[in-house]
Design a protein around this nucleic acid. Sequence first.
DNA 1: GTGGTCTAGACCACC
DNA 2: GTGGTCTAGACCACG
Lengths: 129, 129, 129, 129
Amino acid sequence: MFFQINPSNGIPVYEQVSRQIMFAVASGSILPGEMIPSVRELARELAINPNTVARAFRDLQDQNILQTVRGTGVAVTHGARAKCISARTRVIRDRLRDVLAEARQSQLDEAELQAIIDAEFENSKKRKH
Amino acid sequence: MFFQINPSNGIPVYEQVSRQIMFAVASGSILPGEMIPSVRELARELAINPNTVARAFRDLQDQNILQTVRGTGVAVTHGARAKCISARTRVIRDRLRDVLAEARQSQLDEAELQAIIDAEFENSKKRKH
Amino acid sequence: MFFQINPSNGIPVYEQVSRQIMFAVASGSILPGEMIPSVRELARELAINPNTVARAFRDLQDQNILQTVRGTGVAVTHGARAKCISARTRVIRDRLRDVLAEARQSQLDEAELQAIIDAEFENSKKRKH
Amino acid sequence: MFFQINPSNGIPVYEQVSRQIMFAVASGSILPGEMIPSVRELARELAINPNTVARAFRDLQDQNILQTVRGTGVAVTHGARAKCISARTRVIRDRLRDVLAEARQSQLDEAELQAIIDAEFENSKKRKH
DNA sequence: GTGGTCTAGACCACC
DNA sequence: GTGGTCTAGACCACG
């Protein structure tokens, strides 16, 4: 596991964890059928409380993305890949839609909005590498 | 006052109020120097708690967008217009930046991201009128 | 709230709480739109930890049976009634199906099984009042 | 040995093993005095942990259903048949009683409950052959 | 006052 | 070793 937690950016820690797992499955970094690190181990790595990790795992189990094997650990389900990919798209599209809805509602000039979008998109490309 | 409050959409109610006032000033729907409805009146209209309206007003006063006129009520300051315009841009740009940052971090394919952006932008145009 | 918790019967306490709320909604004891007792209050009444109650509430929110009103409390959603009724039927039917499947798999004589069912059904009727 | 283990259906694996042995004795598929496969062999067959099989055997030994024959292996005791038959009835009756108790507590309409029972009983008959 | 999050630490069943 | 449950207590945002 290779991701980062920011304890003070408004997004609940357990949600940062579950999202990053979801994204990792979507992108193929974690494969269906694979075991993922134990609650305690991941908690140690990320320097957070095990209960917080457990909550993230539980949320993903409720979505049938993870599955616990009794006394053994937690595995990625076989249907997880597709679910994660579409969930990822959905999350991003919905958030984008919210921003655009607010922009429209604020009566921001359309050309200006377009300019902001282009600029930020370029920005994000640069930060990509 | 003509805006709408959604008490269960994640955004704090007081923030929905202050933002919509801000946007109204930015777009010229409310003019500098104008009085705005009292805390009690606005609370009644929007069917929310007066404390919530008061908090929105306080936040806007802290930004020098509103000011109390002794014995009369609350008015939009003369410097408000410019402040609201730039605040509006900032709010929207920041939210957009967050979405794009998350999209990038999720390893979503760039072409797909671009497609989503275009589609949603078109969508929001349609909903505009 | 009028229900009972048995802390040592195998069923997790938070699940006993959420089920009993569900059943209460299904049977009409709690109506859609109504507020339910606060986490702290219910925890006090049932003599359990508030976090345990909170978890039950959270599970029901995930099923869109409860809905929190920010800073105010928790309410039963409007679609809850139908969901609870069908969930109740489903829970009971599934558990019954499991028992019967096990009975069949155990090669228990069918007449004997029928006898057990009849006897227990009569029993449960008696206990009803 | 011809039975199946489901590692992720809530019932502990060791209990699935011991129950299925018990049921096999009750139905006469395994006869008193017969040897049963060794822990290691059964574990291999069922693709589960030997400790799990050992625990199932231990439970059955505690109930005097299995006994170890020094230097030879594990055998079904002579009193086992009767014990298994009554244990089987007890297990099923208890589970049935639990379901009906919950149904009653949920205030499910009695006629509806009766209908569910009948339907599922017919269902289970069909699946039997 | 309300719910939500997080931590800490305990105990349990399971493998 | 594993995950699951529960308790206790703290802090925060919201109305």
